[in-house]
Structure formats: structure tokens, C-alpha cells
Amino acid sequence: MPKFMVLVPGSAESEAGVMPPTELFEEMAAYNNQLAKAGVLLAAEGLKPTSAAAKVRFDDTERRTVIDGPFTEAKEIIAGYWLLQASSLEEALEWVKRAPFGGGVTLEVRPIGSMDELGLEFSPELREAQQQLRQQLGQ
């Protein structure tokens, strides 16, 4: 069954570590319970502000540069996510439209690629190694 990543954008408030009101936590818990009971929810987490984060830039094949947060591009900040499993993008969108948000929040819903969609460059040996890794992870 297809999987979808739902990205929740950050805001000035989430970056400042401001917690949402209790009512929103309650609404979110009820929404997550609906997703779980329907067998759609695989994971859901909030992320800490970018002040607690770091990025790794790959300068070339050997050099890596660590960039400590906070990060200033607010439009690129993700405050949380859901990992959903649904029969189609349309079904995933129907679930996402029920999320307890308002105020112009825009959630991004992205299909997660599968091995079946990869080309010939993803050889049978690589497919087998990926399958073994998924078995190790219990997927």
C-alpha cells in the first residue's frame, strides 16, 4: 500500500519553542487516534526548533561541513510530520483535510517512492540488499 509523508510547516512560534494551547494538543490526539484506528497512521512526531538542529553540507566527496542551527529560512522549516499509509493520494488527502489546523497553514503531502519505481540502475543486488535491510527493520 502506498505511503505518504505529510509535512507540517514551522512558524516563528514553533521556532521560539512556544507550545500550542492544550486544546490543539487534544484535537491533534483525537485526530491521530482516528488515523490509527483506520490503520492509516504509521508515525507522527513533532520536531524541535532548528536551534537544536544541525545540517551537514557535502562539500565534495571527502569534506563535510556541519552547520549549526538555528536556520533563518522560515519557509524551509518543518515542525512535524505524519507518515501515512493509504490506498491512493486522494485517500491520503481526504485524511489530511481533517487535520485540526486553520489560519492558512498549508500541509505538504508527498508520496514516498518504492523500489518498484526505480530504474535499471537499481540492480537486483541493490534490491536484495534493500529488502534485507527492510526485514532487519521489521518492515
Rank of each mutant, 00 (worst) to 15 (best):
K3G: 05
K3N: 09
M5D: 02
M5W: 09
G10C: 11
G10A: 11
G10Y: 10
S11K: 03
S11T: 15
E13V: 05
E13Y: 00
E13S: 14
E13D: 15
S14E: 09
E15F: 10
G17S: 11
V18N: 05
V18E: 07
P20I: 06
P20S: 12
P20L: 05
E23V: 12
E23R: 08
L24I: 13
E26T: 14
E27A: 15
A29D: 14
A30E: 11
N32W: 05
N32D: 13
N32K: 02
N33Y: 02
Q34Y: 00
A36V: 08
A38N: 11
A38R: 03
G39Y: 01
G39V: 04
A43Y: 07
A44R: 02
E45I: 03
E45K: 10
G46N: 11
L47G: 11
K48H: 12
P49Q: 04
S51M: 08
A54P: 00
F58E: 13
F58G: 12
D59A: 14
D60F: 11
T61A: 15
E62H: 07
E62K: 10
E62T: 14
G69Y: 03
G69D: 10
G69W: 04
P70E: 04
E73C: 02
E73D: 15
I77L: 13
I78V: 15
I78C: 12
A79R: 00
Y81E: 06
W82S: 02
W82T: 00
W82E: 03
L83E: 07
L83I: 12
L84M: 06
Q85C: 07
A86D: 08
S87L: 01
E90V: 01
W95L: 06
V96C: 05
V96Y: 01
K97D: 13
R98C: 06
A99S: 14
G102D: 15
G104H: 06
V105Y: 04
T106L: 05
T106W: 01
E108L: 08
E108T: 12
R110W: 08
R110I: 11
P111F: 00
G113F: 07
D116P: 04
E117C: 03
E117D: 14
L118F: 13
L118D: 09
G119W: 03
G119K: 01
G119E: 06
E121G: 14
S123N: 05
S123C: 03
P124I: 07
E125H: 00
L126S: 13
R127P: 11
E128G: 02
A129T: 13
R134V: 06
Q135F: 02
L137I: 00
L137G: 04
Q139D: 11
